[in-house]
Computed example of a mutant assay.
Amino acid sequence: MEKQSIAVIKKLIKDGELSEEVISQLKMDERKGVQSLLKRYEKQMMKEKLLEENFFRMTEYERIAYSKECKYIAGIDEAGRGPLAGPVVAAAVILPEDFRLLGLNDSKQLNEQTRDRFCAIIKEKSVSYGISIIDNKKIDEINIFEATKLAMREAFDKLIPVPDHLLIDAVHLKQLPCTSESIIKGDARSISIAAASILAKVTRDNIMKALHKEFPDYDFASNMGYGTKHHMEKLQEVGASPYHRKSFAPVREVQV
């Protein structure tokens, strides 16, 4: 068989038309350029295989729920329990049964560009999603744990239709109109919780970037309200902003 040009081989790879027969022929091609292309292709295929396997693993809880005749399965997660400033945000999402997004994972494991891209896909493809934002004043009033549960419940209540089953990241919610289960590190074990974690984090990060413009001293756009060295130094130097959580010890100790 006549050897194909590098350009043709690149196009076959790009179009996903590299058959096993062609791959076998390319392995016998002595051109360094061909072998380099083949090596990159095989590396990419291995990466995609691992992503496929991880995505399938993360559908286990959903598959079990579907097997019990649950039609709508929701995931719920929060962002912002630990920071010294800003709100806590929760998101709930119902994904369609055929949802597929390779690389979906705990939002903290993804870079900002990927989170933003995935967030848009999740919003577009989801059956329904809800987002709740509980500000720092409410956090100070009822404590961060209760505020987190409140945010989760509000996000859940925005879902239409009402889910048949709810997967929650590490928190127990009471008096739900459906069955539920709390999963430790659920954002890395369930695609529904992972999707919710991305919606919550992207929403909260955007809020903190907006607060940064109002109070640039604390560098909220970078630290998202967490107690970094710079943030702590600025707290001591200029005091707390109206968006700091006064019930949190490092903030209580400075002049507001």
Rank of each mutant, 00 (worst) to 15 (best):
P96M: 10
F156I: 15
H230E: 11
T179R: 09
A85C: 06
G33H: 02
A74C: 01
T228V: 10
K47H: 10
G103M: 08
L26Y: 02
K234M: 15
R81V: 10
S192V: 02
L95E: 06
V256K: 05
Q25E: 13
E112S: 13
Q25F: 03
I184S: 08
V251S: 05
L176D: 08
S182A: 15
K47V: 13
A200S: 05
I131F: 02
N143C: 12
Q109C: 08
S222E: 06
S24I: 08
S241I: 06
E141F: 14
V256I: 12
L159N: 15
K185Y: 03
K27S: 10
M58L: 03
L50H: 13
Y72W: 10
G75K: 00
Y72C: 04
K39M: 09
Y226W: 01
V8T: 12
K32I: 14
L110E: 02
V127A: 13
R252D: 03
I207W: 03
P96L: 06
S241R: 01
S36I: 06
D164H: 12
E53M: 11
M28R: 11
L12G: 04
H165S: 11
L199D: 00
K185Q: 10
S5T: 09
K213E: 08
Q113K: 14
D98K: 08
I9Y: 00
V256W: 04
G225P: 01
E20Q: 12
V202T: 06
V34E: 00
T179L: 09
L173N: 12
L102F: 07
Q175G: 14
I142R: 09
G82D: 02
L26F: 01
E78I: 07
F156H: 10
P163M: 15
K71P: 00
T114K: 09
I134C: 11
E52A: 11
H172S: 14
E253D: 07
K137S: 14
K39L: 09
K138W: 06
D135G: 12
G186H: 00
E214I: 05
F215P: 02
I207F: 08
D205E: 05
V202K: 00
D187L: 01
V89K: 01
V238W: 00
E233Y: 05
M45V: 13
M28Q: 15
F145L: 15
R63I: 07
E20R: 11
L173H: 10
F248R: 13
I139C: 10
K149C: 13
F156N: 12
G227D: 07
Q255T: 14
K49D: 15
E214D: 12
I142D: 15
R117A: 12
P161R: 15
E237T: 11
I160E: 15
C119I: 03
L18T: 07
T148A: 15
Y41A: 07
K49R: 13
L101P: 02
E42N: 12
G186V: 04
P87W: 03
D187N: 01
I6L: 09
A91P: 00
K158P: 05
G239L: 04
A195C: 01
I142H: 14
V256Y: 03
L12F: 05
G33F: 02
P216R: 13
A91M: 00
R40C: 03
A155S: 14
K137M: 13
V202M: 01
A92Q: 03
P242Q: 14
N105Y: 02
A92I: 02
D116G: 07
M45W: 00
P163C: 15
S132I: 12
R31Q: 12
K27H: 06
V89G: 05
E53V: 09
